[in-house]
């Protein structure tokens, strides 16, 4: 053994430690759509390793859908989502994000009135609020309003600001967090918000709406072989090691298929870049949806995400059912 050449510094967990394995490409929806290496985590890492700045990688950084699929497969355990958001922070913010910040600052002035009641809350996010019937059924399944409350402030603006890599005024953040600190359990529909809140609220159990519903006997009993169950990717990948086992057990119990690839990574159905989220670019989910459906023989599509519901209805003649509506689905 040659001693003197060895240098045993701990290795960093950032883009500098990217080994170039390409595993992130295999799961990245942007890669699937473009086959453009520069738009992938590997491409960003290599460019940064060789001197590129955030501004040089604008298209790549804004194009990431933050689905989180790349993170659990990265053997170097690089926190790829946090690093992409950090790169977004280094870039000029689009006008829509500036407006959002102004709105958030205005909202920070309003003190929420204190509420007593259940110590569990559902943070539905704008998509679920847009489907009040489904939201009501979700609340009923989770125990009804006596057991779980609908959060007045579900941090929709914070979720969007996070997505944009925008800084969030501490006053607004505190205003959002204060009522949540009294809670024991939160069911959060928005996966990126869920990831962000977990370390901020260590005393509470935070789970995704998909996980919360799929643990219920009424929902599990309504799943059947022939269903394609579409996992919401952000929450799943944010807690992958635990949830991969949860869904594997669900597969074994129900016999349904999942939008999982061979690595057990969730294939996002509605993967949206930042400009798409901000309404600055048109949305085309076709590539992802076709890939999820390719070669599958299924009779019903069951989705965790409301956005996925609309997307599948747009391309498939099969019945599409939200998890919250599953127990009431006549076809069950």
């Amino acid at each position: 053994m040659l001693g003197p050449d060895r240098n045993t510094q701990a290795r960093p967990r950032n883009f500098a430690s990217c080994s170039g394995c390409n595993l992130c490409l295999l799961v990245c929806p942007v890669w699937r759509r473009t086959h453009d290496f520069a738009l992938t985590p590997h491409g960003r890492a290599k460019a940064l390793q060789h001197g590129a700045a955030a501004a040089d990688l604008a298209e790549s950084i804004q194009g990431c859908t933050l689905c989180g699929a790349c993170e659990p497969v990265c053997p170097e355990e690089i926190p790829l989502i946090a690093m992409t958001l950090d790169l977004r922070r280094q870039m000029p913010q689009p006008a829509a994000v500036q407006e959002l910040r102004t709105r958030m600052e205005a909202q920070a002035g309003h003190e929420p009135s204190p509420r007593s009641g259940p110590v569990r809350a559902l943070l539905p996010g704008p998509a679920l609020r847009g489907r009040p019937d489904t939201m009501e059924r979700a609340v009923a399944l989770l125990g009804g309003t006596g057991s779980i409350r609908l959060a007045d402030d579900d941090g929709a603006d914070i979720a969007l600001a996070l997505e944009a890599g925008s800084t969030i005024a501490s006053r607004r953040m505190e205003q959002f967090l204060r009522p949540l600190r009294a809670l024991k359990q939160m069911v959060i529909a928005e996966g990126l918000l869920l990831r962000h809140l977990r370390p901020l609220l260590p005393g509470a159990a935070l789970i995704s709406l998909g996980e919360a519903l799929s643990r219920l006997d009424a929902v599990r009993g309504a799943l059947r072989a022939g269903d394609l169950y579409v996992i919401e990717p952000r929450a799943y990948h944010g807690d992958y090691q635990r949830l991969v086992r949860h869904y594997d057990a669900l597969r074994a119990a129900s016999g349904c298929a999942f939008n999982l690839d061979l690595q057990r990574i969730a294939v996002p159905a509605t993967a949206r870049s930042l400009p798409q989220r901000l309404g600055l670019e048109t949305i085309d989910d076709g590539v992802q949806l076709r890939w999820i459906m390719q070669g599958r023989k299924v009779t019903r599509i069951v989705v965790e995400g409301v956005e996925d519901h609309a997307a599948f209805e747009g391309i498939s003649a099969l019945p599409v059912v939200h998890l919250a509506d599953l127990a009431d689905d006549g076809a069950s």
Binding site: G20, F37, A47, L57
Partner: peptide, 25 residues
Amino acid sequence: TAAARAAFATDAGGTAYGLAHGVVI
């Protein structure tokens, strides 16, 4: 651009370094 070429500056071995004049997909 430097960023486009830099993305291919090395291979998995990580001991050979070179820059193309340009990259074509």
